[in-house]
Simulated scan of single mutants.
Amino acid sequence: MLWSSLVGALALVAPTNALIRFGCSQLVVDRLDPLVQPGVEPSAHLHQIVGGNTFNVTMDPNNDIASMATCTTCQFSEDFSNYWTAVLFFKHKNGTYKRVPQIGNLGFDNANGGMTIYYMQDALYNMNQSSKVTAFKKGFRMIVGNPTITTKEDARKFRQITYTCLQDMATRGPETMEFPTSYCPAGILANVRFPTCWDGKNLDSPNHASHMAYPISGTFESGGPCPDSHPVRVPQLFYETNWDTREFKDLWPADGTSPLTWSQNGMGTDREGYGSHADYVFGWKGDALQRAMDSNCYVNCTTLKTQTMEEQNKCSLANVVKEPIDGWLPQLPGNPTG
């Protein structure tokens, strides 16, 4: 089903549903990681970041980034959160690398790259978004995935970090745990879904992950119960990044191997894409996110303030780390070893 048809059908469902889907244009692509390597400049590998312009090398958890920010790259203008992932590169057969550009998702065609962000009460394509969820709090942050993972067995620990080979911009399946090995006519969609059960106490944890958990049985989408250790059901946070691989069509290997690599994979140990990972720092203004989750917000949301695509595209940050990240490079930025 095309996304436009899906949205039209979802608009007819009962007014107890809450699922918001919105585009966030590119804020900056830089070698900073204020969660894993706070204060370190540069960090080990390159990231692509969207959201509020308070993003910086430290991201002090005591700061209210929603009140400090002056702009956001996200459509909902009360969202000054920061969302980021590693950066995708194409590896030429001669050993050089080129950053894969990003394009706006379906419905966000004029976005300056970036990502599509979802907050959901239930499954993405569920017509009945009715579960009660507790919005994240000021100071909350988390990470999902692990950049050092190189095997499918280890990758299974993180549910629903996947890839979709786009036949056109409306393609939404199948999803695979591995990079597509054949050329994808409309690019590659990288999907990241975060855990949905919170311990209800800690806004963060030393590894930025243990304060979160998956349902003890079943899945978030099937209404699986949260474990006693993490009893609070929070929204399903979901990132989609459209990586535009079309310029590499004539360079794609014919032997079935993937030419793609994440920015942390300087030694080439992860040829399958298992090391995909993502970071989140909450920065919604006031109770805006909770109001949205408690309202009849399905994709669009009149409860929230919005800005134009032109306005969100104008919000940006200058690179802190001055180094080449575009064009054909002899090695990945930072030449990471993981």
Rank of each mutant, 00 (worst) to 15 (best):
T150F: 05
D154V: 00
T241V: 15
T176P: 07
K201G: 00
E175Q: 15
N202D: 14
A170R: 05
T176H: 10
C184L: 11
A186Y: 00
E175V: 10
A190C: 01
G139V: 08
N207L: 07
P147R: 14
R159W: 05
I188P: 02
N202W: 01
T171V: 08
T176Y: 11
P235N: 14
P227C: 11
I216D: 10
G223W: 01
R159T: 12
S229E: 06
Y214N: 10
R156T: 14
R193Y: 05
P235A: 14
K137P: 01
R233L: 15
R193T: 13
Y214S: 10
G139Y: 01
A190H: 03
G139Q: 06
Y239M: 03
A135W: 01
L237S: 03
L237F: 10
A170K: 10
P174C: 11
F140Q: 13
V232G: 03
L189N: 15
E221L: 01
P180R: 04
E178G: 10
P147Q: 13
P225F: 06
K157D: 06
E178C: 12
P195K: 10
P231K: 12
P174S: 12
G139P: 07
G218L: 12
Q236A: 15
R159Y: 08
A190G: 06
T181G: 01
A135S: 14
R172I: 03
S229A: 15
P215Q: 09
P180S: 10
N191I: 11
E178Q: 15
T162V: 09
I188E: 11
D204E: 12
F238L: 12
Q167V: 13
E153M: 10
P235Q: 13
P225G: 09
N207H: 00
S217L: 05
G139H: 07
H230C: 02
L237H: 11
S205V: 05
G145P: 08
Q167S: 14
M212W: 08
Y183K: 03
A213W: 02
Q160N: 15
E175I: 06
H230P: 00
N207C: 02
Q167Y: 02
C184M: 09
Q160E: 14
R172V: 08
S229V: 08
F238V: 03
S222Y: 01
L237Y: 06
A209I: 05
G223V: 02
G145W: 02
P185D: 12
T176A: 15
F158H: 11
Y239E: 03
L166P: 07
A155C: 02
V232F: 00
V144P: 03
G224C: 01
P185A: 13
D168N: 15
P195W: 02
P225M: 12
